[in-house]
C-alpha cells in the first residue's frame, strides 16, 4: 500500500525533493545567465559577449597553465592575507578581551582603520614598500584585520559565564580551557568572520593587483580592459567568483560538521 498524506496526495520522493533543491539553488544563476544572453543578442560583443564565448575563455584559462597560475597567485594572496589577518586579529582580540585598557587603546585604532578605503591602503602600500607580494599582503591584512578582531572579541565576550564557571571548577590548564571551551564557543563567529572577509578580500585583492602587481586576476583584468575584451574580463572575474564559491562551500561543510550538535527546529524562522 502506498503512503499518502492527510490531504490524500503522495509525499514527495527523495529524488524529486533533491531535484527541486538543485533547481531552487540554480534558479538565480540561470536567471542572471539568461538575462546576459538576451542582452548579448541586442548589444555588440565588446559590451555583452555571448555566454558561449565567455565559457570558452573560462575553459582556456583553466587549461593553460600560464594563465591558470595567475588565478593561483590571486588565491594564494587572498588566503595568505586572510590567514595573516586572522592570526593577528585573534591575538589582538584575546588581549582586548582580557584587558579593558588594551581594548580602550586598540578599539579606536581598529575603528579608524575600518574607515580607511581599500584604495587608500593600496596607495600607501605602493609608497611605503617595494616588494609587490608584501604590498598586497599588507593591504589584505589591514583591510580585513578590524573585522576579524571585532568578531572574535565579540565572540569571546559572548561566551557563556555559566560554562566558564563550570569549566573553571575543574581547574583546567590554559591549553585545556582553550581547547575545550574557548575554541568551540567562538568557532561559529570565526567561521562567519571568514565567510564575510573572504568576499571582502576577493574584492580588495583585485584592486591591489590592478594597481601594483605583475600577475594575478587583477593584473589580467587590467590587460582585458586595455584590449577591450569583455569576454576575457568576465572569464577572469568568474575565476575569482568560482574560488569564493568553492571556499564558501568548504566553510559550510566545516560548519555542518562542527555544529552537528545543534538542535534543528522543524519550524523555520
Amino acid at each position: 500500500m502506498s503512503e499518502r498524506t492527510l490531504d490524500g496526495t503522495s509525499p514527495p520522493t527523495p529524488i524529486i525533493d533533491g531535484a527541486w533543491r538543485v533547481v531552487r539553488a540554480l534558479a538565480p544563476f540561470i536567471f542572471l545567465g539568461a538575462a546576459w544572453q538576451v542582452a548579448s543578442l541586442f548589444f555588440p560583443a565588446f559590451l555583452f559577449p555571448s555566454l558561449v564565448a565567455v565559457f570558452w575563455r573560462c575553459l582556456d584559462i583553466l587549461e593553460q597553465w600560464s594563465q591558470f597560475v595567475d588565478v593561483l597567485y590571486t588565491v594564494g594572496r587572498i588566503l595568505a592575507g586572510l590567514a595573516g589577518a586572522f592570526i593577528i586579529g585573534a591575538v589582538l582580540a584575546l588581549m582586548m578581551a582580557r584587558s579593558k585598557l588594551v581594548d580602550g587603546f586598540l578599539s579606536p585604532i581598529l575603528t579608524f582603520f575600518q574607515g580607511i578605503p581599500a584604495l587608500s591602503w593600496v596607495v600607501f602600500a605602493i609608497i611605503w614598500f617595494h616588494g609587490v607580494e608584501f604590498r598586497i599582503f599588507f593591504i589584505m591584512v589591514l583591510t580585513t584585520l578590524p573585522a576579524f578582531t571585532f568578531q572574535i572579541v565579540s565572540a569571546l565576550r559572548a561566551m557563556s559565564k555559566d560554562l566558564v564557571e563550570m569549566v573553571m571548577s575543574f581547574r583546567p590548564s590554559r591549553v585545556q580551557m582553550f581547547r575545550t571551551l574557548i575554541l568551540p564557543s567562538i568557532l561559529p563567529e570565526i567561521l562567519t568572520a571568514w565567510k564575510v572577509n573572504l568576499g571582502n578580500a576577493s574584492r580588495v585583492v583585485v584592486v591591489a593587483e590592478l594597481v601594483g602587481a605583475t600577475g594575478g586576476v587583477g593584473y589580467q583584468l587590467l590587460q582585458q580592459q586595455q584590449i577591450f575584451d569583455m569576454a576575457g574580463a568576465l572569464a577572469w572575474t568568474l575565476q575569482l567568483v568560482f574560488f569564493v564559491l568553492i571556499v564558501q562551500y568548504i566553510l559550510t561543510l566545516i560548519e555542518n560538521f562542527a555544529f552537528r550538535y545543534r538542535a534543528i527546529s522543524e519550524r523555520s524562522l
Binding site: 555559566d162 564557571e165 563550570m166 575545550t180 568551540p184 562542527a258 550538535y261 545543534r262
Partner: peptide, 10 residues
C-alpha cells in the same frame, strides 16, 4: 550547578 551547564557540543 543549578542548571546542568553541559557543553552543548559534547
Amino acid at each position: 550547578f543549578q542548571n546542568d551547564r553541559l557543553l552543548p557540543w559534547r
